[in-house]
């Protein structure tokens, strides 16, 4: 072996050794567990905090409303649609901490006339002209029993 290679060889070995040592400390343990990424990232993503409750949480206490809704136009709705995320209320059910959204703008999100809404899917009215003498839709329509007392 030529003398110049002999002299460089230890240097190369030191550099490769250093690289391996640094790499050992920089690459996370779970990197490559499932693929070219940190395996713990799956746990990080899965362990984020919930904000929204689920319909089932609501039904645990409010089975009376669940029964009403099952036979009503709003049967497919989750309680969260009008009552907000609701997880605070699940944690502390006795406090007044649940939203009760209503009114022309809110109900109009779904029920305002729009050519893009299928009439098979949803009843629509023109919120600008529909019973303008009333302030809030829920004066006539109980969201839990939409047609009750109207006919």
């Amino acid at each position: 072996m030529p003398i110049q290679l002999k002299r460089l060889l230890p240097l190369f070995i030191i550099f490769i050794g250093l690289f391996l040592i640094v790499r050992h400390f920089l690459v996370p343990d779970t990197f490559g567990q499932y693929g070219h990424y940190r395996g713990d990232a799956l746990i990080d993503n899965a362990s984020r905090n919930l904000v929204h409750a689920s319909k089932e949480d609501c039904h645990e206490c409010h089975s009376d409303i669940q029964e009403k809704l099952e036979n009503d136009m709003h049967a497919s709705l989750s309680c969260l649609v009008c009552h907000g995320p609701g997880l605070m209320h699940v944690a502390d059910p006795l406090a007044e901490n649940i939203e009760k959204m209503s009114g022309r703008t809110f109900c109009g999100r779904c029920h305002q006339l729009n050519a893009a809404r299928s009439t098979d899917m949803i009843y629509q009215i023109d919120i600008a002209t529909h019973h303008t003498e009333k302030d809030n839709c829920i004066e006539c329509h109980n969201p839990h029993e939409v047609w009750e007392g109207l006919e």
Binding site: H52, S54, C110
Partner: peptide
């Protein structure tokens, strides 16, 4: 649980 968008989708 369902994803938030699907939990809340009314239709």
């Amino acid at each position: 649980l369902d994803p938030a968008c699907m939990e809340i989708c009314p239709t």
